[in-house]
């Protein structure tokens, strides 16, 4: 059952990629794409993309909400960077802090690290086990728990439902 779910998700992802790459007006290309993707699924048993995504209604709703949260954070981080760069005194207070995550799946951790890089004033430098080392442009706390609460928790809430 788990293998079956992985195959379905991989099929949907590759099909979306192929349709975006060759636009919708060429039927023969789409048929060829389906055949090639099925051959890929047969011959490469270990290929898995987004394999630990939970297929439930709640998870779909949360993933749509996550996109909007992410876009809002992206816009806010850009305004933040703009004010810092345009200020003649260059108000920065940088440092590398350590935060802890409670996610288990690999895809969830990848998406969490990418989201941290694109949110206000933070950049993932290194991951070791459960800990992320994050370069923060305006360090307000050096405690692990508080830094985790300020940086990680707003995304973790959604990603825990999506990826488990």
């Amino acid at each position: 059952m788990k293998i079956f779910k992985q195959r379905i998700l991989l099929l949907l992802f590759l099909m979306l990629f192929w349709v975006l790459l060759t636009s919708l007006d060429r039927q023969e290309l789409i048929a060829g794409g389906v055949i090639v993707i099925l051959l890929t699924l047969v011959f490469f048993r270990r290929a898995a993309v987004f394999s630990d995504f939970q297929i439930t209604l709640k998870s779909l709703i949360y993933s749509i909400a996550y996109i909007f949260v992410f876009l809002a954070a992206l816009v806010r981080s850009n305004l933040d960077i703009a004010f810092r760069v345009l200020n003649p005194k260059l108000p920065i207070n940088p440092g590398i802090v350590k935060v802890k995550t409670s996610l288990n799946s690999k895809t969830g951790r990848l998406i969490l690290a990418n989201s941290i890089t694109l949110t206000p004033g933070t950049l993932t430098v290194e991951t070791k086990g459960d800990y992320y080392y994050i370069h923060w442009i305006d360090v307000s706390t050096q405690d692990v728990e508080q830094a985790s609460h300020e940086i990680v928790s707003k995304f973790e809430k959604y990603l825990e439902v999506m990826f488990g």
């Binding site: 992206l74 810092r84 760069v85 345009l86 940088p94 370069h135 442009i137």
Partner: peptide, 24 residues
């Protein structure tokens, strides 16, 4: 703004922050 941040920031990590976010 991203390119300006690349020029103005003092070290490579801050430059990376400005460059990545603004250009995305």
């Amino acid at each position: 703004l991203g390119a300006l941040g690349i020029v103005r920031m003092p070290d490579v990590y801050n430059r990376m922050q400005a460059g990545t976010k603004a250009t995305t």
